[in-house]
Every structure is written in structure tokens, then in C-alpha cells.
């Protein structure tokens, strides 16, 4: 997977790294158990301050996306629920609100939105199979 970082964005760089790795894991392009590059290697590759990468990895470990194995590095973690039901709902709402307002502004109606979401889910299922 290739991570691409944009400077001058309203999204902090560490957040961009977190989001892209999270996406890679969610879509299966980074399979469970895969070893991540070391903090230093990824910092060198992306030309970013190593502390930024360390912070991104720490956030991903906290969220259960990665796991850190003492002395061996970071690995894609098996999926497990680490959030409460309420927290999961909150996080879903957080991403759904901007998505829905964008879709509605573009003139899609409720039915079309559901169809589009379904199409996407099927596509994702094919990728991860």
C-alpha cells in the first residue's frame, strides 16, 4: 500500500497517515498479520518527522488496528471490538453526517443513496474475498 501525504491540508499529517492505514486494513489491502515498516523506515520513505509516524502508529494501536510486538515492530491486528457499542455508534455518526449532507447536496435521494452504499459494499466484499 502506498501512503500519500498532503501538506497545507486542514487534516494534520499524522491523521492522514492514520486514515490511510485504517482504510488499507479495512479494505484488506493490508492483511491481518502483515508487518508494518518501522517508524524510521516509513518516516524516511514519506519524508516525515519520525515522531509523526510514531504518533500515528500509537493512535492505530490504541484503536486496535495495529498491534505492537515488543522488539519486533508493528503488525496489522486481527479485528476485534475494542469500542463500546455507544462509541462505535458515535464514530459511525461522525463519518456519516458529512457523507449524507454531501450526497443530499448533490441531489441524490434517500433511495439512490442506499443503492450506492450497497453497490460499494458489494465491491468491498469482492476485494476482501
Amino acid at each position: 500500500m502506498r501512503i500519500q501525504v498532503t501538506t497545507g491540508s486542514s487534516i494534520p499529517i499524522y491523521r492522514q497517515v492514520v486514515d490511510q492505514i485504517r482504510h488499507g486494513v479495512a479494505t484488506g489491502s493490508m492483511p491481518v498479520g502483515e508487518q508494518m515498516p518501522s517508524v524510521r523506515a516509513l518516516a524516511g520513505e514519506l519524508v516525515l518527522n519520525a515522531n509523526t509516524i510514531a504518533k500515528a502508529y500509537a493512535a492505530l494501536v490504541r484503536d486496535g488496528v495495529l498491534e505492537s510486538q515488543q522488539g519486533r515492530g508493528y503488525f496489522v491486528a486481527a479485528r476485534r471490538e475494542i469500542f463500546t457499542r455507544k462509541e462505535r455508534q458515535r464514530r459511525l455518526d461522525e463519518v456519516m453526517d458529512p457523507f449524507l449532507s454531501e450526497a443530499l447536496t448533490l441531489g441524490f435521494d434517500a433511495e439512490q443513496i442506499v443503492v450506492e452504499v450497497q453497490k460499494r459494499l458489494e465491491k468491498l466484499a469482492q476485494v476482501t474475498d
Binding site: 501538506t7 499529517i13 519524508v47 516525515l48 518527522n49
Partner: peptide, 10 residues
């Protein structure tokens, strides 16, 4: 160069 600073500075 603010873009470079954003990349490399703490």
C-alpha cells in the same frame, strides 16, 4: 517553506 516545516518539524 511552510510545507517543508509541516513535514519535518516537531
Amino acid at each position: 517553506l511552510l510545507d517543508d516545516v509541516e513535514r519535518i518539524a516537531d
